[in-house]
Each structure stands twice: as structure tokens, then as C-alpha cells.
Design a protein around this nucleic acid. Structure first.
Lengths: 156, 156
DNA sequence: TAAGACAGTTCGGATTCTGAACGCAATAGG
DNA sequence: CCTATTGCGTTCAGAATCCGAACTGTCTTA
């Protein structure tokens, strides 16, 4: 199977990756969450080659994760902002950051700290069950696939 | 900048991606969380080409995300299991799944449901602040970078 | 008038990916 | 005993991507 066909899998993880699973894309999103909006800034901060960045921004816009809107004129200039759909990728980016802080940090400690505005404390968000409020980890959850009687075998 | 140098950025997201940011790797992890352990099963379920899968498994093992242990003999056979380090990637995978369920589902609904064992309910975990217990989204958090006086410019 | 910022696009060599085939040991079937 | 079949990779060569450098084109600033 080709990478370009992964979105066809009957799996929400695969379908998500078909939009944001490319190399560099996640770094573009990191920047977007850090309020980067312009091409040059995305390029400088992510380090992505220009043709790649150009392509990734296009894909994200086509998929409604970023919105491209004009901000200057003569010559026309555009900025890229997260849409509501894009903002909901925050848990993905934060989870990557949290894991990196825990397992990949060097002796200087985490490069960036997260502060919860409401309680004014530094922290790493964790997953909890919205039904009962308990914290959840890998061992607290089981999966049930939609019936396989349709001949397909969903993965997740 | 080349993708292979991504881990050199002073950023926890980038360092995490240097381990799990390759194409196919996330699908391998999805399988690992669904209790897939053998090469053939990873291959069948992810659809990754064999040489790619072989490489990705090696990288994950080298980075301590998966453990490779013998389970048969003559010929030697090995299985791949998540380590503690690997299990902590659960929030990343669940977040991808949640976003896919919300934004990429087809008319059949989510292919797989998550059940919280403790309260026996179907749900999607959400992020909360471990300090105060409040639910948190992108707008509830601010970032503070380690001082830039060292000449480096951490991204996150 | 010249230089620089900005937002891309074009080009071609360098990397990666990918499907098909192979290797090699054991096991199952006839 | 001979022949699949399963399992776990590796090898190979053509195809697809990547990526650095250079270029385009329009304004702004010196």
C-alpha cells in the first residue's frame, strides 16, 4: 500500500494521518499554535524547505485545518490561521510536546513550559474521561470495533 | 534543513517527531496499542511495505518505544511490545483517533469505539489540567519559553 | 538607484519509498 | 518423502519525493 492511500483505511487514526501525517506538517501546526502566520516565519521556524512548506500549507488549507486570508495588498499577501477544525488538533500537539519533555529532554529541561491561564500553574495536560472525570491511561480503556459483518475490518 | 536533522531542534515536539514522526510509524503504534505483536500482523494491518516496516520497527526498538523479545525458536522469532515509554504515547494516538472520529468520519460513524473500563462508558478522553482539574483547550494555555539569553530560540 | 523583505515557483541531483522476488527454517498436508 | 504454507525478514531496481539553490515579481526602505 502506498502512503498516499492511507486515508482509505477504515480507521480514524489513518484518516487523520492522511491530512497531518506528512513530514513537516506537525511542525507547521506547532508554529500555528505558537501564533506564526506568515510563510517566511513558518519557513524560518520549522526549517522546512520552501517547496515542501508551500505544499503542506496548501494541503492544510484544502483540508480546512488552516484558513488562508489576505492581509496586505500589492503584492497580495496571505496569512495562515488555524480554523476551529485546526484548533482541535491541540491535544495532538500537546501530547507530542509532553512526551518529548518527559522522554527526550536534555539536561536544560523542557524548552517551553505550558501555563494554565485559569489556575496560573505550569503543567502538562493529561487525558481524563469526560463521562466520569477520572484520569485515563492506555490500560484504562478497551476498544470495540463496529461490527465486522460488513466485511471490513476497522482498526480504530 | 533535512528531515533527518529534525531532532536537533530545541523543541520537544521536534524531538518526539524524530522518533515517531516518520510515515507509517504512527500506524505501527496504533497496531501496538491494539495488541499486535508480530511482523506479519503489523504488515497486514498497517499496509506498510515490508522494508519500511522492518526499518520502522528497528527505529522504535532502538529508541526504547518497543521491546523486541524472542517468543519461538528454530527459527528464532521475535515479538514487538510497547515499553513503558511507548505506552506513554497513548495520548498521541488517542488524540489522533478522536480528531479523526470528529472530523474525518464517514456516514457509518467511528470505526472503533473507546470504552472506559472504570465507568463502562463509551467516550473520547479529553485534556485536563492535573493541577486544578479543569478541562483545557488551545485557548486556555499560554507558553513560556526558557530564557532566550543563551542565544537559542526554543519553539516548544 | 540599489538593496532588502516577502511569498512563492522552478529545476535537477540526492534520498526514500515501494512492489516483487528471494532466502531460510520449520510445520502441515498428502 | 515431497510439496505447500507460514513467518520474518533482506535485496534489488524503478518510481516517487525531497530539498538546496536559484529565480520571479512586487513592493518598501535607504
Amino acid at each position: 500500500m502506498r502512503w498516499s492511500e492511507i486515508g482509505e483505511q477504515d480507521c480514524s487514526v489513518a484518516r487523520t494521518l492522511s491530512v497531518i501525517g506528512d513530514r513537516w506538517t506537525m511542525l507547521v501546526l506547532r508554529e500555528a499554535f505558537m501564533r506564526t502566520r506568515r510563510f517566511e516565519d513558518f519557513q524560518r521556524n520549522t526549517g522546512a524547505p520552501r517547496p515542501i512548506l508551500s505544499d503542506r500549507l496548501r494541503v492544510l488549507v484544502d483540508n480546512g485545518v488552516l484558513a488562508r486570508s489576505p492581509y496586505g495588498n500589492h503584492p497580495d499577501r496571505f496569512e495562515y490561521r488555524l480554523t476551529e477544525k485546526g484548533l482541535e488538533l491541540y491535544p495532538v500537539v500537546v501530547s507530542l510536546l509532553t512526551w518529548g519533555d518527559r522522554w527526550m529532554a536534555d539536561s536544560d529541561g523542557p524548552p517551553v513550559a505550558l501555563r494554565h491561564k485559569a489556575c496560573d500553574r505550569t503543567m502538562h495536560p493529561e487525558l481524563a474521561c469526560p463521562e466520569c472525570g477520572e484520569w485515563v491511561g492506555a490500560r484504562d480503556i478497551s476498544t470495540a470495533s463496529r461490527g465486522a459483518q460488513d466485511g471490513r475490518h476497522p482498526r480504530s
